[in-house]
Amino acid sequence: MHGEYKVPGGKLVAVDLEVKDGRLAGVRVSGDFFLEPDSALEDIDAALDGMPETATAAQLAQAIGGALHDGVAMVGFSPEAVGIAVRRALGRATGWGDHTFDVIHGEPVHPALNVALDEVIPGEVAAGRRGPTMRIWEWNAPLVVIGSFQSVRNEVDLEALQRHGMSVVRRISGGGAMFMEPGNCITYSLVVPGSLVEGLSFEQSYAFLDDWVLGALADVGVRARYVPLNDIASDAGKIGGAAQKRFASGVVLHHVTMSYDIDADKMLDVLRIGREKMSDKGVKSANKRVDPMRSQTGMSREAIIEAFLAHFRGRYRTQLSDYRPEEIARAEELMETKFLSDGWTYRVP
């Protein structure tokens, strides 16, 4: 059995093994990583030999860590990375290349419909009616989207919201508020089976699922990096943030919003938390903190999105898709009964 895992920002780890009587045998770890001293590789292999085939990535990593002395240097990989590669060899975890992704870039819709689709699409993936999906949001009205656990009154100035003709919707994932006007952000949702992030901690899964967009940003001239727990930043400042929702069905929703051309004054008028973050960091210029991609690339939002889609299609196996009528109908129902209801929006007043 053979399994591989590419560490985000690091090196490739490969594992070859057999299973005999329910335990790992003949384990051989390889890759383009760095390891000192050389003999530590034999210690890693020996630590894995005899482990139960049901061991989790964390248990495998613990066995490796216990077999290595303090002077061992693992550069570009870790015990956890080896554990994930083992799980992939065993077929317990999958890699990007094991899936064909539906790619959707539809017409602008009511912004709350996009929030509802983030509940509908994972259900379709879990039921097997749709494959793993990457979709770009397009919306036709201004909106503030708050995290699942945020307080409306703590995050949003409701008088300013009304003054600017905006509404507020609560999404199903955690994280912070998104200030969204048509054309001011680039937002995408990635819906994947849990097997793709099997063995990864929450923090590791953020870096793993954000890795492709760092490459896409490089294509448009932005040198970006992942900043734990859920931010994407460049040398000029923060670009965007990610949020996740893990469903009981085993499906994972990972979505990212990146600033393109935000009206910073309006954003700070509407978002209370934005004022606090600005004050805390001693930043006088809102535009400096928002750091829109337009100023870093000189490209239109449409051109950046096309570059992102081209990068994703070039990197993974994909097929173009669109929302199905039944998905839109279900999302419209959820929008009316849940996401635009006071009971859901103000569940944390």
Rank of each mutant, 00 (worst) to 15 (best):
M180P: 00
P132M: 02
G76A: 09
S78Q: 10
Y323W: 15
F312E: 04
L200G: 00
Q150N: 07
Y206S: 01
L309K: 08
S285Y: 07
R129E: 14
M134V: 12
S234W: 06
R225M: 08
A216L: 02
G298A: 09
I328L: 14
M293S: 02
L196A: 05
Y260I: 06
S148H: 10
V290Q: 08
I64S: 10
S300E: 12
G175I: 00
V348E: 13
A160Q: 14
Q162G: 14
D157C: 09
G176S: 08
G215C: 06
I262R: 04
I84N: 07
S234V: 03
G71P: 00
A85Q: 02
M335Y: 02
L320R: 12
K281H: 12
T56R: 11
V222T: 06
M258Q: 03
V103K: 03
V168E: 07
N154Q: 14
A81C: 09
L48F: 11
P111L: 03
D118H: 07
R317C: 01
A310D: 14
F33T: 03
G95N: 12
D45Q: 10
M267F: 07
G240D: 01
M299T: 01
N230G: 01
G71N: 12
G176Y: 05
R272D: 06
S30D: 15
A303S: 13
L268C: 08
V7G: 04
G10L: 11
D45R: 13
M51V: 01
C185D: 13
W96L: 00
G194Q: 04
D16V: 02
A224I: 04
G240W: 00
A329I: 02
E333R: 13
R28F: 11
